[in-house]
Design a protein around this nucleic acid. Structure first.
Lengths: 206, 206
DNA sequence: TAGATTGTTAATCGATTAACAATC
DNA sequence: TAGATTGTTAATCGATTAACAATC
């Protein structure tokens, strides 16, 4: 089935499957099944099988899935069978923590460029990376060929930052600023707003 | 309409609407419309009107919505017209950044208890909060009457941490550990895994 | 073989959208 | 009034699930 026909909501579940598979692998499981994955993740086995069927046939009737194989297939499908270099804009408390956090590089996304527009911060070094002025984003990002960026600026600066990133050739943005940004149709944006998650849960509390 | 009939996906969009309204308010807008909000957020105006209709009638035909009023209504509906105290478990790089991050308290969620199971960290003070041993979670959380917690431990410790939190009476968990946790049906869980977002976008890159 | 699980189809379920009467 | 926008209905669209033949 052609790539363009896969619903984005299905693509969004693949990383969850991959995460579970990597964990199973690290725990020594060689084989799993849609039922076991469903149990672990709290979703239906039918959904897992249907999601995977968009991309091929990875299982064996009566047996299930080979953990290492399916894991590798998902990494290939998601294009995470390589290391991606990522630009990070905004080195406040949050940005600093993201720059230091080991969980990205460990899973294939290495933050390799830091930008900020505060003259006090420019030139500082974090994790061997020197903070550069935001105005240089277009040229530096393009020179390094980066395609992915994170925005950790205040909300006020997010749209302007996104414009600079797009100008530099960025095609995927993880936005930590609590504001919607607008970008060309061929640029992907994902949002992380922990407070929105907390508010959503507060609805169900007394 | 009874609370239980509101789809969770609708509840999940209310914080996004609220965020946009607060921003409009701060920019001096007194009135807005479903069309303007739709434009800002990149969703349809019909969806915004339909979502709001689950909770009442907040607009005026021909005019739109009074920003401050709708904002206050959404805060009331979401139960964020108060300050929630939040427990944070796991004070590594990520947890430390969360504890310091001003964006929570500013929007009604104050981190007020810190826990870790590393003897080196116990007793340390961050933002006037003393890190306490994880084993004391049940009693301390219950004594303070907290209902919301964040998990920022390694994946290995997340399930055990969730168990302790539930034992202490926690009813909503924001889980930063990259692993699914299982909790009783009346406990809500939201996940934040930035790498999953990056992987999802990588699918669309060459 | 008998038992188990996949991949897939068709049915069901739920969410989104278009359209418009009501009305400010 | 004329123009604009809401709240709501019905239709459309899309996602999830149940069920089972195929087959390991």
């Amino acid at each position: 089935m052609a790539r363009s026909e896969v619903p984005d909501i299905v693509v969004g579940r693949l990383p969850i499957y991959l995460r579970a598979l990597i964990r199973l692998h690290s725990e020594g499981h060689e084989i799993t099944s849609s039922h076991e994955l469903a149990q672990i993740l709290g979703i239906s086995s039918a959904q897992i099988r249907k999601d995977l069927s968009y991309f091929g046939e990875f299982g064996k009737q009566g047996t299930g899935y080979h953990v290492a194989t399916l894991s590798a297939e998902l990494q290939r499908i998601l294009h995470v069978d390589r290391e991606w270099q990522v630009a990070l804009v905004g080195v406040g408390d949050l940005g600093r923590a993201l720059a230091r956090y080991g969980g990205f590089a460990h899973r294939g996304f290495r933050i390799s460029l830091l930008f900020d527009n505060d003259p006090e911060k420019i030139g500082q070094v974090i994790n061997d990376m020197t903070i550069m002025p935001a105005e240089q984003i277009p040229q530096v990002v393009r020179a390094h060929g980066l395609k992915i960026a994170m925005i950790a600026t205040p909300a006020d600066a997010a749209q302007e930052t996104a414009n600079l990133l797009v100008e530099g050739g960025i095609r995927a943005i993880l936005n930590y600023a609590p504001i919607a940004i607008s970008v060309p149709k061929d640029v992907h944006v994902q949002y992380i707003d922990p407070v929105a998650h907390l508010q959503r849960m507060a609805y169900y509390l007394d």
